[in-house]
Computed example of a mutant assay.
Amino acid sequence: MNNIGIFPRGGELPEMFAEYFSGKAYLNMLTEKGVSIGNVTFEPGCRNNWHIHHKGGQILLVTYGSGWYQAEGEKAVKLHAGDVVNIPPEVKHWHGAAKDSVFVHLAVEVPAEEAYNEWLEPVSDEAYNNLE
């Protein structure tokens, strides 16, 4: 599982991010010059907490496996390699792997002055386990 997709997996998430994930995930920062782009690998069943990108938003470029994306108040969407998700600023959302698949995406942080992420509550096991 070290080199799934076109970029190396990277190491386990730093502690400052790991607390916002249910399960194990890995991060390989590809660049932080101009635009921050990280290759994020989720083990099966791993997902991040609900969160909001204030000011700048985020773009997910799915490169391997299958997973989920859900914006608050909307139905979860199943994702596969080749999918692109444009997440506007100020939208509460989460994303992560399907129960039975590794999930890899490039996380592109849309640059904006004074942009920051607000991490919120975990996605409940009940809600996640009921995804179809």
Rank of each mutant, 00 (worst) to 15 (best):
I4A: 06
P8C: 05
R9Y: 03
G10Y: 10
E12G: 12
E12M: 13
L13G: 07
P14K: 13
P14E: 05
P14Y: 08
P14V: 09
E15Q: 12
E19W: 02
Y26D: 06
Y26M: 07
L27D: 05
L27S: 14
N28V: 07
K33Y: 01
G34S: 08
G34H: 07
S36M: 09
G38T: 12
N39G: 02
F42G: 02
E43M: 11
P44A: 05
P44D: 06
R47H: 12
I52N: 01
I52W: 01
H53S: 00
H53P: 01
K55I: 04
G56F: 01
G56N: 00
G57Y: 00
G57L: 00
Q58R: 03
Q58Y: 00
L60E: 03
T63Y: 03
Y64M: 03
G65L: 02
G65Y: 02
G65V: 00
G65S: 03
S66A: 07
G67I: 02
W68F: 04
W68T: 01
Y69D: 02
Q70R: 06
Q70F: 06
A71W: 03
E72N: 07
G73Q: 09
E74H: 10
E74Q: 15
K75V: 06
A76I: 05
V77A: 07
V77I: 14
L79H: 07
L79N: 05
H80W: 03
G82H: 11
D83A: 03
D83H: 13
V84E: 03
V85E: 05
N86E: 15
I87R: 04
I87L: 09
K92H: 13
K92Y: 05
W94H: 04
H95Y: 13
G96E: 08
G96S: 09
A98N: 14
D100C: 11
V104N: 15
H105A: 13
L106P: 09
V108E: 08
V108A: 14
V110C: 15
P111D: 10
P111C: 10
Y116C: 11
E118P: 11
E121L: 07
P122D: 07
P122G: 09
V123F: 04
V123Q: 07
D125H: 06
D125Q: 12
E126A: 13
A127C: 01
A127S: 09
N129H: 10
N129Y: 01
L131T: 00
L131E: 02
E132F: 03
E132I: 06
